[in-house]
Simulated assay, not measured.
Amino acid sequence: MSGAVSEMETDMVMRNGPVLSDGTKVSDLINLETREVKLRTLSDDPELYKLEMEKIFAKT
């Protein structure tokens, strides 16, 4: 798999938000109504860490 993101992948992310490699939507990890966060978000998941870094430093 190359590092390039296809146009279809970009469209999917724009419509559904980021999706992890196992198919989990990042938005599914947080329940805004009950203010609960899945334990997975508190682990040392390298994929989530990378997404966080991209969001934090994308504007600098």
Rank of each mutant, 00 (worst) to 15 (best):
M1E: 12
M1S: 15
S2G: 15
S2K: 15
V5P: 04
V5M: 12
S6G: 12
S6H: 10
E7R: 14
M8E: 04
E9C: 06
E9F: 10
E9Q: 14
E9P: 06
T10V: 03
T10R: 02
T10P: 00
M12Q: 11
V13D: 02
V13H: 03
M14A: 09
M14N: 13
M14E: 11
M14T: 11
G17I: 02
G17R: 07
G17D: 03
G17K: 08
G17Y: 02
P18Q: 08
P18V: 11
P18A: 13
S21Q: 10
S21M: 10
S21N: 08
D22A: 15
D22W: 08
D22N: 15
G23Y: 09
G23A: 11
K25N: 11
V26Q: 01
V26D: 00
V26W: 00
V26P: 01
V26E: 00
S27C: 08
S27N: 08
D28W: 08
D28A: 06
D28H: 09
L29E: 01
L29N: 01
I30V: 12
I30H: 06
I30F: 13
N31G: 08
N31D: 15
N31K: 12
N31T: 10
L32T: 14
E33R: 14
E33V: 13
E33S: 14
E33G: 11
E33W: 13
E33P: 12
E33K: 15
T34A: 14
R35A: 12
R35V: 09
V37T: 11
V37Y: 09
V37E: 09
K38D: 08
K38Q: 11
L39V: 05
R40Y: 03
R40H: 02
R40I: 10
R40E: 00
T41S: 01
L42Y: 02
L42T: 03
S43P: 00
S43D: 00
D44K: 01
D44L: 05
P46H: 04
P46W: 07
P46S: 08
P46N: 03
E47M: 06
E47A: 06
E47S: 02
L48I: 04
L48Q: 00
L48M: 03
L48V: 02
Y49F: 02
Y49D: 00
Y49M: 00
Y49W: 03
K50M: 09
K50I: 09
K50D: 09
L51D: 02
L51K: 01
L51H: 02
L51Q: 02
E52N: 04
E52I: 04
M53G: 00
M53N: 05
E54P: 03
E54A: 04
E54F: 09
K55L: 06
K55E: 05
I56E: 04
I56V: 07
F57N: 06
F57A: 05
A58L: 06
A58Y: 04
K59T: 06
K59M: 08
